[in-house]
Write a protein that binds this DNA or RNA. Structure first.
Lengths: 188, 188
DNA sequence: CTTGTCTATGCAACGAGTTGCATAGAAGGA
DNA sequence: TCCTTCTATGCAACTCGTTGCATAGACAAG
């Protein structure tokens, strides 16, 4: 299980509330990990009782008060020891691929719309990632590379490049899928 | 939830026992879905009580007897209706990316070995996929394209191409990660 | 002034997935 | 003979993840 570790990393990058974490998981962290606010709140409470994180009540004027979490020393140690143990290869769960193979026993043409929908969603994700890259890393307004270079930014960037590569690969594959489905549809 | 549907697809392609399904999930189906034998047996029993699959006791001489499952009409109908409803975008859980961003708060150089290990594992997967493609689809011994073309084979092939594209993209990204980690390690 | 939206947190129930263990027939090697 | 390996199936306990629902303050629109 690594949700705890993903939260630790996010809190080390910047302390925040459960709500804020949930939003980060929808955005920047979203391209390699997903979690709902329920999960996050539950895990945060467990981490708090384990002493991995500190809490600070932050009163806010124009919106409900929040609890700001930050990483405590035991949390940092837990992350460090996790970083030093080997992990499993990521495992894939790709519903769409199940559908594509299943289409052989149904109507392949009926899948075209669905695949187009996924294509569009991935296009939007790619656009979002590229905008983020321009803003934070390669654009004119991006913080210039400091000397000594910032390892954190470099590593965030290489992970983002992974997200971008994944989306590009997926889009190319979906084009291949669409071409195959259309060929099969026209051949009957 | 789609494990049921993945099992239905696999049983439509070829009936088999729970044990055989578990092995298929380690191999060809493995590049878009994973499942342990526990999960498979449990779901098979549920599908049997729901009437989605038929069972046939197959006595075997040189090994324990087995139960061969095949898809019944209600199962086929359930698959068909699932194929016609939209599904969520696949969600990613990439532990390695968490580690990479976490390395900023630890020692980036210590990650190099781990990333190399992943690189090697993905190389092996790619080799396996390519061998499978050669054997089943593009090699000289592969069944020649029949007329009319076999939609099932075409769709299996396009899914396999997706697996191959994923592995190639991942390997290229891991090279990028390694270059970044090595640069950071040498710069201190 | 009610309705809706955004921030912010949480409970309860359920279903999915993992881990550890157990059984058992058949085969082959030490 | 005992040990291991492969085939084949399964139980029990636990953790993780999802879904539905609930509360509540602040603000804006109708």
């Amino acid at each position: 299980m690594a949700l705890e570790h993903a939260i630790l990393v996010s809190l080390l990058e910047k302390p925040g509330s459960g709500y804020e974490l949930a939003r980060r998981f929808e955005r920047s962290i979203g391209y390699f990990w997903t979690a709902t606010h329920q999960q996050i709140y539950r895990v945060l409470r467990r981490m708090e009782t384990d002493g991995w994180v500190d809490v600070r009540e932050v009163p806010q004027a124009d919106r409900p008060d929040k609890k700001e979490y930050s990483v405590a020393e035991p949390g940092r140690a837990a992350l460090s020891s996790w970083l030093h143990e080997p992990i499993e290869l990521e495992s894939v769960r790709h519903d769409l691929a199940v559908k594509i193979r299943g289409a052989a026993f149904d109507d392949p043409a009926a899948l075209i719309r669905e695949v187009e929908r996924h294509h569009q969603a991935h296009t939007e994700r790619l656009t979002r990632y590229l905008a983020g890259e321009l803003r934070d890393f390669t654009g004119p307004d991006a913080p210039t590379a400091p000397v000594p270079p910032d390892a954190g930014r470099e590593l965030q960037h290489v992970v983002l490049r992974g997200g971008i590569a994944y989306e590009r690969m997926t889009l190319a594959w979906l084009d291949d899928v669409l071409a195959t489905l259309r060929r099969l549809a026209s051949e009957r």
